[in-house]
Simulated scan of single mutants.
Amino acid sequence: MTPASRFNHRYLVLAVATFCCFLWGSAYPIIKIGYEWLNLAADDTASQILFAGYRFLGSGALLLIFAGLMGKSLWRFSGREWASLAMLGLLQTTLQYVFFYIGLAHASGVKAAIMNATGTFFSVLLAHFIYRDDRLSQTRVLGCVIGFVGVVLVNIGKPGSGVDAQVSMLGEGFIAIAALVLSLSLIYGKHLSRTIDPTVMTAHQLTLGGVVLLLLGEGLGGSVAITTVASGALLLYLMALSAAAFALWSFLLKYNPVGQVIPFQFLIPIFGAGLSALLLQESIMEWKNLAALVLVCSGIWLVTRPSPSQRR
């Protein structure tokens, strides 16, 4: 690869990764708006899961249609490959979003966006044990500590109230668990993309995971009624968001080292917090929210910056 092509490649990765993070960041306020428009109460877990099922089943269907129009093989997999796709769907779509949707219903969009940034640190720790050329260093450990200080800071309530006064296991706790599950599934998806086309892989995992969410939500007695054009358009946007972001991110992970792609996830809390403040009229100008964003982003920069030998 020539210097010019490497330059263009870096800017292409930057553009695609930034677009994916913008889409994921926009999900925080859009989902909460969807809860309001569809009259889904914070404790109506069954309907929230059903809502997620509609979203991801639709996302998978959109990607399957797109992949089919592109002439890709959609169904020729071995039994082992189907089992791997099912496992990925259960992890990346079903399990992650059960935790994510419930957590988002019990936390503000700003706090959820920042809590989800813990996924970057989980990815760094997992990479240490999976990839021999991606070990932890003192700088990375320091970055993890600074980032988690930011995560704790955003959960501090009024002076003297203590962290526990503002932390909910069903809210911030479930968002953090969702981030861990996503980190595991992205690394697993990178492994599968070696033999399965990323678009087809993403389409099937979204479809399979969405079906499980749909059945789970229905079985628990959930109810979602799309009765207006606005609510239908919102659901369609969430479907397209997932289809585009996960497919593009899978391509990035397939053709680039994890350590060169994961750093861009620091943009998700930035977009998520900013869009939540804009669309939900949530407060982002409090000193603790701004300080937490700075700490989280600083921590991720320390974790992901290249070593001196890599820069040379």
Rank of each mutant, 00 (worst) to 15 (best):
T2F: 07
R6L: 15
N8E: 13
Y11I: 14
L14Y: 13
L14V: 09
A15F: 11
T18V: 10
F19K: 01
L23Y: 06
S26G: 04
A27S: 15
A27K: 06
I30R: 00
I30H: 01
I33K: 09
W37F: 10
N39I: 07
L40I: 15
T45M: 09
A46Y: 06
I49N: 01
A52Y: 03
A52C: 14
Y54G: 13
S59C: 06
G60W: 02
A61W: 04
A61V: 15
L64P: 02
A67L: 09
L69C: 10
L69E: 02
S78L: 00
E81H: 12
W82Y: 13
L88I: 04
L88C: 04
G89F: 00
L91R: 01
Q92Y: 03
T94H: 08
Y97F: 15
F100C: 00
Y101S: 14
I102G: 01
G103Q: 08
L104V: 05
L104H: 01
L104E: 09
S108M: 06
G109L: 02
K111P: 02
A112N: 04
A113Y: 02
I114R: 06
Y131E: 09
Y131T: 05
Y131C: 09
Y131H: 11
D133Y: 07
D133W: 02
D134Y: 06
R135D: 10
S137V: 12
S137D: 10
T139G: 13
T139Y: 07
T139K: 14
V141E: 04
L142F: 13
V145P: 03
V145Y: 02
V145F: 10
F148G: 01
F148M: 14
V149S: 14
L153R: 06
N155G: 09
I156N: 11
G157N: 08
G157V: 05
K158W: 04
P159Q: 03
G160M: 11
G160I: 11
Q166K: 14
Q166G: 15
E172Y: 04
E172S: 05
V181G: 06
L184N: 03
I187S: 07
H191Y: 14
R194Q: 12
R194N: 12
R194P: 00
I196N: 07
D197V: 04
T199K: 03
T199G: 00
T199N: 03
M201A: 11
H204L: 11
H204Q: 07
L206Y: 00
L208S: 05
T227M: 12
T228L: 02
S231F: 04
L234H: 03
L235I: 15
L236N: 07
Y237W: 10
A240L: 14
S242N: 15
A244E: 02
A245F: 01
S250W: 01
F251K: 08
L252S: 06
Y255K: 13
V258S: 13
Q260T: 12
V261C: 09
V261K: 11
P263T: 10
F266D: 03
F271S: 05
F271K: 09
F271Y: 13
A277S: 15
L278A: 13
L279G: 08
L280A: 10
E282W: 03
S283M: 09
S283V: 13
W287A: 15
K288F: 04
A291R: 00
A292C: 10
L302T: 11
T304D: 11
R305I: 07
P306A: 09
P306V: 14
P308C: 08
S309H: 12
S309F: 11
Q310M: 09
